[in-house]
Amino acid sequence: MSALYVLTDVVQCYGDREVLRLPSLAVAEGVILGLAGPNGGGKSTLLRLLAFLETPVAGEIHYRGAPTVGREYALRGEVTCFPQEPYLLKRSVRANVGFGLTARGARDVRDRVEEALTMVGLDPGRFAGRMWHELSGGEVKRVALAARLALRPRVLLLDEPTANLDRDSAELVRRAVVAARERHGTTLVISGHDHAWLRAICDDILWLRDGTLAAPLFADGHAWPETAEQTNTVARNVS
């Protein structure tokens, strides 16, 4: 496996406040990487950087071996992000799920929309024609996830995908993202507080606290290899 992302001395600040400092991090292609740690630890910031929605104030991000600055629009064609509280466009479910495909000029929009809805456990016949305001909270999240899955991204970044979801919906989300990796080899980076859920699905879990990589506070969090470098953990998968 090769390194998909390589981050070097990346620092991100909001105003005067430093929110993230990562001396070195590599993410291998095809892995499922978990991000754990307390709120405000830098998980969402890291995901936004990986999604090319933000540019770091210092440091470099390489994606597939090349620097990313100035190529954000093109790169967002293969990397997509599923936010903590997804937003649906004021349109039908079909238009929401198909938006990205249409924006990218895909031809088989209808089929891929239906495939994506099926992946998240929503019957296209029942749901595709519904308007955005005719959905429950869990359905909104699953429609938003379907909109990302429909793109068949190379990288799917998920920010607390199961927060505020009931158990069945959380399981449907798990199945959908695992299916994305199995079918299309999608690399997944998933943040979350549900450690059992993360452990069940991830190849490796990074702990972020106070904007940097840290060992877990609780022993039952994630088994942290004593010998591993605190940075570069996933680089093991790289070599």
């Binding site: 929605l53 997804p86 937003y87």
Partner: peptide, 28 residues
């Protein structure tokens, strides 16, 4: 408009023109 709109459009791969028209659409 909802502050989540822009990142949503960007992450779904919209270019500047599509962001403009989709934003106007949301503000219809």
């Amino acid at each position: 408009l909802d502050p989540r709109l822009r990142p949503t459009l960007l992450t779904l791969g919209a270019g500047p023109r599509q962001v403009f028209f989709a934003t106007l659409g949301e503000a219809r």
